[in-house]
Each structure stands twice: as structure tokens, then as C-alpha cells.
């Protein structure tokens, strides 16, 4: 594999990821996912509300892929920030672990 075409792959990947980031807040279904849906269907209501009231172990800055008070724009930004964060972390990880360079 050549380095040049791998960079092309990277740019294509970033373009697709950002396109998905921008579209997801408008196109993604807000229905509960498979696990939540299963939980809603088979757990007794009293227990379910108990589970829902429990605080997560860590409070996330952009819970539910949104930024407080920023609406849909905030959701686009949140997913784009996450995409870039994963991109940067993967690169840094790759550089650190790649001792052959």
C-alpha cells in the first residue's frame, strides 16, 4: 500500500464521518435503541424508573450528544467534536505505539 493513497483514504474517511455528523441530528431516529427498548418492554415500571433515576458514574460534558442550549447546531457540533477527538486520539495512539518509525 502506498502512503499517498492511504492519506486519500483518510481524507475520504474524515469527509464521510463529518457528513454523517452533520446529518445524524436531523436523520437519526430518536426511538430508543435495542437495549433500551428491551428494558422498557420487560422491566417492571417501578424498577425501570428506579434505574432511570440513578445518576451515571461520571457526568458527561455533552450528554446525549448535545450541548446545552444549542439545539440542533449543538448536536452537530457535539458529534463533530467527538469525531475529531476519536481521530486525534487514534493518531496519537498510533504514533505512540508505532515504534518501528
Amino acid at each position: 500500500m502506498s502512503g499517498k493513497s492511504n492519506m486519500k483514504f483518510l481524507y475520504a474517511g474524515i469527509a464521510i464521518a463529518l457528513l454523517v455528523s452533520a446529518l445524524a441530528p436531523f436523520l437519526a431516529s430518536s426511538d430508543p435503541d435495542g437495549l433500551e427498548s428491551a428494558a422498557g418492554g420487560i422491566i417492571e415500571e417501578s424498577k425501570m424508573s428506579e434505574l432511570e433515576e440513578m445518576e451515571p458514574a461520571v457526568n458527561s460534558p455533552m450528554a446525549d450528544y448535545s450541548i446545552e442550549g444549542m439545539g440542533k447546531g449543538g448536536e452537530v457540533a457535539a458529534i463533530a467534536i467527538g469525531t475529531f477527538a476519536v481521530l486525534v486520539i487514534s493518531f496519537v495512539f498510533g504514533k505512540v505505539f508505532n515504534k518501528k518509525a
Partner: peptide, 24 residues
Amino acid sequence: LDEMKIPILAALAAGVFAIQAMNI
């Protein structure tokens, strides 16, 4: 992983993160 494969890994990781936000 080598210099050649890192961009592929990064592109796939970013793509996986983004696509996971797209609930169908």
C-alpha cells in the same frame, strides 16, 4: 501498525464514531 496504516486506522475510528450516532 506502521506509518502507512495509522491513517487507515484513524479514518475507520472516526467513521465508526460518527456512524454510531446515526440511529436507524
